[in-house]
Design a protein around this nucleic acid. Structure first.
Length: 408
RNA sequence: GGGAGUGUACCCAAGUGGCCAAAGGGGACGGGCUGUAAACCCGUUGGCGUUCGCCUUCGAUGGUUCGAAUCCAUCCGCUCCCA
């Protein structure tokens, strides 16, 4: 087992806040002395089927604990999913069906496995329906009697919604309590989460104290900002990079983040050490583009492998480099129906629509007159015109969308 | 239960009888430029034929009117204040 100081160094990297550092030090010290691993809890929300890099920030922290010899306890919130975490939400979450929860949990685990160690001695997986489902109404009342309305409404997301005139439903108030109960049930020593989970996680401490247990240490990680550079990374905002995405997309998306975000990404998503990070993010020392290419490589390597990263870089510059004449490695094929053709020609607008580049002919015409559609690299000149097409030709929308034609 | 508001396109938000397919902003998309899918600048942003028009759209339904996002009625949703 690593020394206390080593462990603290690894485990504290990138952390936003620890409640509290002294307690953490004590717990780790005792764990080393008694050679007994800590139980480190992470609750997962089976609401989204795919993980984004945002989710991996806290998963990586869990991995850090595993690497220090501790036990990860992953809670699948199959029961809490009936409420949905209200954190950061301006709207109530839709309720999930048991089937959705199940399939989401499966893909989640598969994808989380890219970050955490899934060997059984390092990872314990629990479903919170195990202890929440047997509770009867009286148990729930008893639970609710431990927390005041005022305390609950302090919570920023509730307070904000209340103030903004957006409804807050009673059942949402139960979410933090259920999550807190999880900590009691699994006897968590440490709970991890994003900063948006602070309230929920701290409530776990209260519940444990009520049960005369040693309260868990709460460690919250910063929320990863999405590719837009402002909002939290999330699927619904469309500013995400998915764990399961193809190397070229993953790399391209990393290249699209604002330069200012690089330090943040380096800290939270890579293991690059501090000194190297400051070199990379100092534009006097490193060209920002090169720093970003390096970042992209690191990230693609983490979720795929080094070879995939190299070819993603190569492809990126082939397409977006100086000449801009390059083509991606994989181009989907699209059939051009014969009935749109007359003497081997098709109307420019129809072509764009059947390639899937425009939803309507009007949109297609607008795109064409903005030089947005290219055939074999040449912009289509006339939105009203006809063009000759043959199988194998490449049609392109903008810089990134390509399609190969199959006529007939 | 009483009272006051409010519902407009992907989102926010203007519009209170014709000049409204509906201002503005955000987002998204396209172009230019570049250091990249950064930044910045420009453009596009209901559908169908097209230099003119037709069709669908402003919570829902019905009505008034030559004409309604705009007026009236009923209904539905949401919020706030009082009880």
């Amino acid at each position: 087992m690593k020394s206390v100081e080593e462990q603290l160094k690894i485990v504290l990297r990138g952390c936003d806040t620890v409640y509290s550092q002294e307690e953490l030090r004590k717990k780790i010290t005792r764990s080393v002395e008694k050679n007994q691993p800590l139980r480190v809890k992470l609750g997962m929300d089976p609401t989204a089927p795919d993980l984004t890099l945002g989710h991996t920030v806290v998963l990586q922290k869990l991995r850090d604990f595993q690497d220090c010899g501790h036990k990860a306890v992953l809670i699948i919130g199959d029961y809490t999913a009936m409420i949905g975490d209200p954190s950061g939400r301006s709207k109530t979450r839709p309720v999930l069906t048991p089937e959705q929860v199940k399939t989401n949990a499966e893909t989640y685990l598969a994808q989380a496995g890219k970050v955490i160690d899934t060997s059984p001695e390092k990872l314990e997986i629990r479903h919170n329906s195990e202890w929440l489902k047997p509770l009867d109404f009286a148990d729930v009342i008893r639970m609710a009697s431990k927390v005041t309305v005022a305390r609950m409404m302090e919570r920023d997301t509730f307070a904000k919604r209340q103030k903004a005139g957006i409804e807050v439903f009673i059942h949402e108030l139960f979410y933090p309590m259920m999550q807190a109960q999880d900590s009691v049930e699994i006897k968590a020593d440490v709970e991890l989460g994003g900063t948006d989970q602070t309230f929920n996680n701290l409530m776990g401490r209260d519940f444990q104290r009520n049960m005369d247990m040693a309260p868990q240490v709460v460690m919250v990680m910063p929320i990863l900002v999405g590719t837009d550079g402002t909002e939290k990374m999330s699927k619904s905002l469309g500013n995400y990079i998915g764990v399961a995405e193809a190397p070229s997309d993953m790399f391209g998306k990393v290249m699209s983040i604002p330069d200012e975000l690089m330090l943040n990404y380096y800290t939270l998503l890579t293991k690059v050490d501090e000194q190297r990070m400051t070199e990379l993010t100092d534009s006097g020392k490193t060209h920002p583009r090169d720093a970003k290419v390096e970042l992209g490589k690191q990230i693609v390597t983490k979720f795929h492998d080094e070879k995939a990263a190299e070819s993603a870089v190569e492809e990126f510059f082939r397409i977006h480099g100086k000449g801009k004449a390059g083509l991606p490695d994989d181009i989907p094929e699209v059939k051009v129906p014969v009935d749109l053709l007359a003497d081997g020609e098709i109307s420019a607008a129809d072509l764009a629509v059947c390639c899937g580049f425009a939803k309507s002919k009007g949109e297609a015409r607008r795109l064409i007159s903005d030089n947005g559609i290219r055939l074999e690299g040449e912009p289509l000149p006339d939105p009203m015109g006809m063009v000759k097409v043959t199988s194998g030709q490449v049609v392109q929308r903008g810089k990134r969308k390509f399609v190969r034609l199959v006529v007939g």
